[in-house]
Design a protein around this nucleic acid. Structure first.
Length: 340
DNA sequence: AAGACGAAAGTGGTTGA
DNA sequence: TCAACAACTTTCGTCTT
């Protein structure tokens, strides 16, 4: 059963609604990701194509024809887990507070009222006041019982703030909070700012989930310099022995391309170029965003959708000079048929 | 006039003695 | 700890469209 909603960009979307006759829910062969493709019969405003794909890993909906990203702030509306019967389905829809690593005590906490009244509103006798006072004191101490808990509570709200600003999907946030927790457990935060470690955890989580954000982008929305994020991230990955593959320039291509308004042919052309360049070893030691920018620039020229170097540079977060250097290397070493 | 090009000097971080 | 180094940036003058 489908329920139509009007998206704010004016595009009609469909949303899956959990109903008894929904076949996917009870099909154990379906993967989570299968279930989450909820956009159907939607039209791309650019080319009118109806082939849209919702990519919940990157939190983007894009058109397979022209590559336009229609919505890059996708909210994961599906149920928390797969459900196999009625009872579970009721429990597992995304309602209430699921247990999550992003809340410091998972939302379980008790407060003792500061007023000296009992539940009927009567005053508490003076002889008991001291006892209540002690209870309150201890309750406060227990709730946020240690500096560790205070730290975590602050860090997780900061993490939420930063990742909202970056439009990061839930999976990345969970992953980042797990990283932060283990850093805290190993007492690696001492001597470092909480913001810095939060930013670094997010950076690691982003790269792990192949949703790369540059150090620049992260330091822009958090109150940490790029230098500090970089230092902390290296420290964390060493101490927690997190192995990270170097970011592939290809991971940046869809995001940059859609921000530039390039077609999907240009995207795949750029990816082709990058693959060739990687095979020839032209990308090693080079900043991946610079390589991605140059490949996109070349692709845009080849397909006569030319973008200026400045526009590409700005979106990719590199300078025009870097793009020039990169694409000079590309054109010199790769036979691309057409001279620029 | 805007964009592309390239030289030269500067910056921040890594590496190896 | 320091110098050498590679990648990248900043700045600026010149050429091209």
């Amino acid at each position: 059963m489908k329920n139509e909603i009007l998206h704010d960009s004016g595009i009609l979307k469909e949303e899956n609604v959990l109903l008894d006759e929904d076949p996917i829910i009870n099909d154990p062969d379906k993967k989570r990701s299968d279930y989450y493709v909820v956009e159907r019969q939607t039209k791309c405003p650019e080319c009118g194509s109806e082939d849209l794909i919702g990519d919940y890993e990157r939190a983007e909906i894009f058109c397979t024809e022209c590559g336009l990203v229609i919505d890059d702030n996708l909210v994961d509306m599906g149920p928390e887990w797969r459900a196999f019967d009625h009872e579970q389905r009721d429990k597992r829809t995304r309602v209430g507070a699921p247990v999550t690593y992003t809340i410091h005590d998972k939302g379980l906490s008790t407060m003792i009222d500061w007023r000296n009244k009992d539940i009927y509103g009567r005053d508490i006798p003076a002889r008991n006041r001291a006892q209540w006072h002690r209870l309150r004191k201890w309750q406060r101490k227990i709730r946020i019982s240690s500096s560790t808990e205070r730290n975590l509570a602050f860090a997780l709200s900061e993490l939420d703030r930063v990742s909202s600003r970056l439009g990061l999907p839930r999976s990345v946030r969970e992953s980042a909070s797990v990283i932060y927790r283990s850093a805290l457990e190993r007492k690696l935060i001492r001597g470092r700012s909480i913001e810095g470690v939060v930013a670094a955890s997010l950076y690691i989580a982003c790269r792990r989930c192949s949703v790369p954000r540059t150090l620049d982008e992260i330091s822009e929305v958090s109150r940490v310099t790029k230098k500090e994020v970089g230092r902390t991230y290296r420290f964390l990955s060493r101490e927690l022995s997190i192995k990270l593959m170097p970011t592939s320039p290809i991971d940046y291509v869809p995001r940059f391309a859609s921000e530039l308004g390039l077609s999907s042919e240009a995207q795949s052309r750029a990816i082709e170029i990058i693959e060739k360049a990687m095979a020839k070893g032209l990308t090693s030691g080079r900043g991946p965003n610079g390589v991605a920018a140059a490949a996109l620039y070349v692709a845009s020229v080849l397909l006569t959708e030319r973008k200026t170097q400045r526009d590409v540079a700005e979106i990719a977060g590199v300078t025009e000079v870097t793009i020039r250097n990169r694409y000079k290397e590309l054109t010199e070493n790769l036979d691309m048929g057409i001279t620029l």
